[in-house]
C-alpha cells in the first residue's frame, strides 16, 4: 500500500459570495503524477494555490503525511519548503542570478552551508540543462529557460511534492517542449507531482492519475487511459472532445 503524502478533505474556497472550489476531496500518493485538467475558471489554479497555502481555505483541511497543515500547528513556511511550487509566470527573483535563485532558499530556509547549497543547485541546474547559465540574471534568459530554472529552484529545496501551476501556458510554442522534457524526466525519477495543465498529451502519456475539474468540483478522476478513452461523465467527454479536436 502506498503512502498518502497529501490528502485534501472537503476543501472549499469562496471569494466573497463566489464559490470557486466546492468540497474537493482527493489524495496524492508517493510517486504519483497527477494532472489536473479542466476549462479556464474551473478552479484548478486556486486548488493548487490552496494546497500551497498561498490562498487561505474557506473550509476543509489539507493533510500532509496525516497532519493537518491548516490547523495552525504546523508552520506554513516549513510546510511550503517541503511542497515545491512552479508558477505559470516563473516568479524568479529578479535581483539574483540563476545560481542565486537556486541557492537562496536552501541557505536561508533550510540553513544549508554555502558550498553544499551551491553543489546542490548546480546538480539540479545541470539536470534541467541550465548549468551553463548560472551567472545570468532572470531577465537575460528566455521563457523556457526561466521555467527550467524555476523547476531547478523548486527541486533544490528537495521537496516531497512538486506543484506545477500551468508551467507551459506563458511560453512560446517552441519552448513548451524543453519544459515538458524536464517534467517527463522528473516523472521518470518517480518525483511526486501535481500538475495543472492544458497539455493533454502530457496528462495522457506521462501522468499516472488525471483529475477533471469543472465549476469548482471534481467531475471525474482516474487513470489517464480510462479518462481519455472512456470517460464516464458527459461533461468530461464534451471537454475532451472539444480540446482534443482543436
Amino acid at each position: 500500500m502506498s503512502e498518502h503524502i497529501l490528502e485534501i478533505r472537503h476543501l472549499s474556497k469562496t471569494f466573497g459570495t463566489h464559490a470557486v472550489l466546492k468540497d474537493i476531496d482527493f489524495t496524492v500518493d508517493k510517486g504519483d503524477v497527477t494532472s489536473i485538467i479542466g476549462a479556464s475558471g474551473s478552479g484548478k489554479s486556486t486548488l493548487l494555490r490552496c494546497i500551497n497555502l498561498l490562498e487561505t481555505l474557506t473550509t476543509g483541511e489539507i493533510l500532509f503525511h496525516g497532519q493537518d497543515v491548516t490547523a495552525g500547528k504546523i508552520n506554513p513556511s516549513a510546510y511550503r519548503a517541503k511542497v515545491g511550487m512552479v508558477f505559470q509566470n516563473f516568479n524568479l527573483f529578479s535581483n539574483l542570478t540563476v545560481l542565486g535563485n537556486c541557492m537562496i532558499g536552501q541557505q536561508k530556509v533550510s540553513k544549508i552551508p554555502k558550498e553544499e547549497a551551491k553543489n546542490r543547485a548546480l546538480y539540479y541546474l545541470n539536470k534541467v540543462g541550465m548549468a551553463p547559465y548560472i551567472n545570468a540574471r532572470p531577465d537575460q534568459i528566455s521563457g523556457g529557460q526561466k521555467q527550467r530554472v524555476a523547476i531547478a529552484r523548486a527541486l533544490a529545496m528537495e521537496p516531497e511534492v512538486l506543484l506545477f501551476d500551468e508551467p507551459t501556458s506563458a511560453l512560446d510554442p517552441e519552448m513548451v517542449g524543453e519544459v515538458l522534457d524536464v517534467m517527463k524526466s522528473l516523472a521518470k525519477d518517480r518525483m511526486t507531482m501535481l500538475v495543472v495543465t492544458h497539455e493533454m498529451a502530457f496528462a495522457r502519456d506521462v501522468s499516472t492519475h488525471v483529475v477533471y475539474m469543472a465549476d469548482g468540483v471534481i467531475e471525474e478522476e482516474g487513470k489517464p487511459s480510462k479518462i481519455f478513452s472512456d470517460p464516464e461523465s458527459p461533461r468530461t467527454r464534451e471537454f475532451l472532445k472539444r480540446i482534443l479536436n482543436t
Binding site: 500551497n52 498561498l54 513556511s77 516549513a78 510546510y79 511550503r80 519548503a81 517541503k82 515545491g84 511550487m85 508558477f87 509566470n89 516563473f90 516568479n91 524568479l92 527573483f93 529578479s94 537562496i104 532558499g105 530556509v109 533550510s110 524555476a150 529552484r153 523548486a154 529545496m157
Partner: peptide, 10 residues
C-alpha cells in the same frame, strides 16, 4: 509574484 515565489520556497 516575487512575494509568492519566496513564500513558495518556504
Amino acid at each position: 509574484g516575487q512575494f509568492e515565489g519566496a513564500r513558495a520556497i518556504g
